[in-house]
């Protein structure tokens, strides 16, 4: 079970170069294991989407990867360093091994091509020798997989609802049976009913096909239910990482605690919603020490001077946190 499929080590992503560069992702370590759902949560601007774009090398300029490595472990064969792949190898790696479902459900499909064209071209690009009839059959199966009737293949994107479009994108992401599917706020643009439906479907598909999911969202409540482990990002760093149930029951980092108290629970007793005072840090002028200390209700002496390292605290085994309240007993093994 604990077999890594994607390892991110010390990844740094900047926007811009030199002194003017903004550090959007700072020394992020994250490991995705085979077949698990890893949730990545944080406020807008915390760097979670940048992380996803960075590890697939899709960063739009002026985004630059300034350090770290991303290692992909294929089912068979030696590990691959994604960041040093040649353009041709990178193209082969994309989608076949790691596919992405993007934030903009509405704009992810090219409006002038039929669904079939867009589903088939990715299969054709990666399996140029496959027969056209086989590709078409695969495309039909994929649509059925996400609960869309196969005759929708000939539709144009504008003829589908938002939920259907996003399901088409999920079908497309699964077209080449990748080991890793990155989902960048895949349900943000949809209403809650549709959200639930799609997530349910996704969970079921994962059971059946066994791919790992890196699920990025600002909606922590969604993750608590849906993911195996949750990583919390703040100011470009991972500040806490724990199994979903543990995190929900007891948040170690005050920021996680704040996030957990900013949405209502569907079941259980009513509790007061507090939210987090202040606003996310300005990436151009990050606070010294812990990035969260200006907003932290429990900040104390070392917080404004020293950056807390991410690691296993003595008082909570099996999880990582970067907070001076829970000093690290042993640093995370690299």
């Amino acid at each position: 079970m604990r077999d890594p499929v994607l390892e991110i080590r010390g990844l740094r992503v900047d926007y811009g170069l030199g002194d003017a560069a903004v550090h959007a992702v700072r020394d992020v370590d994250l490991t995705l294991h085979r077949g698990e759902v890893l949730g990545l949560a944080g406020e807008s601007g915390s760097g979670k989407s940048t992380l996803a774009y960075g590890l697939t090398r899709l960063l739009p300029p002026p985004g630059v990867i300034s350090g770290g490595e991303v290692v992909y472990h294929p089912v068979d064969g030696p590990p691959v360093d994604v960041l040093s792949l040649s353009p041709a190898r990178l193209r082969a790696f994309r989608w076949a091994d790691t596919s992405i479902v993007f934030q903009g459900a509405m704009n992810s499909l090219n409006p002038v091509h039929r669904i079939s064209t867009q589903l088939l071209d990715v299969i054709k690009a990666h399996e140029p020798r496959s027969a056209a009839a086989a590709r078409l059959a695969r495309a039909r199966d994929l649509l059925r997989l996400v609960g869309i009737s196969a005759d929708r293949l000939e539709s144009y994107p504008h003829q589908l609802s938002g939920g259907m479009r996003q399901r088409v994108m999920i079908a497309m992401a699964l077209a080449l049976e990748p080991q890793v599917v990155i989902m960048d706020e895949p349900t943000t643009a949809l209403d809650v009913v549709m959200q639930r439906q799609i997530l349910g479907q996704l969970a079921e598909l994962r059971q059946r096909l066994g791919f790992a999911v890196l699920f990025i969202t600002h909606d922590l409540s969604l993750l608590v239910e849906f993911s195996d482990r949750i990583a919390i990002m703040y100011g470009g760093r991972i500040v806490e990482e724990a199994p979903a149930a543990d995190l929900y029951r007891r948040a170690l980092h005050p920021y996680t605690d704040g996030l957990l108290h900013s949405f209502p629970a569907l079941r259980g007793a009513r509790r007061e919603l507090t939210g987090i005072p202040g606003s996310p840090p300005d990436l151009r002028a990050m606070p010294t020490g812990c990035a969260f200390h200006p907003r932290c209700p429990r900040a104390f002496t070392p917080c404004d001077t020293d950056v807390p390292p991410l690691g296993r605290p003595a008082d909570a085994p099996g999880r990582d946190v970067a907070c001076w309240l829970h000093p690290v007993a042993e640093p995370v093994p690299r």
Partner: peptide, 18 residues
């Protein structure tokens, strides 16, 4: 070029020409 579907097309590993 800055539309989402272009990013998706890149992510799909299609050739630059396509």
């Amino acid at each position: 070029s800055s539309e989402d579907y272009i990013t998706v097309a890149h992510a799909k590993g299609l050739s630059e020409r396509r």
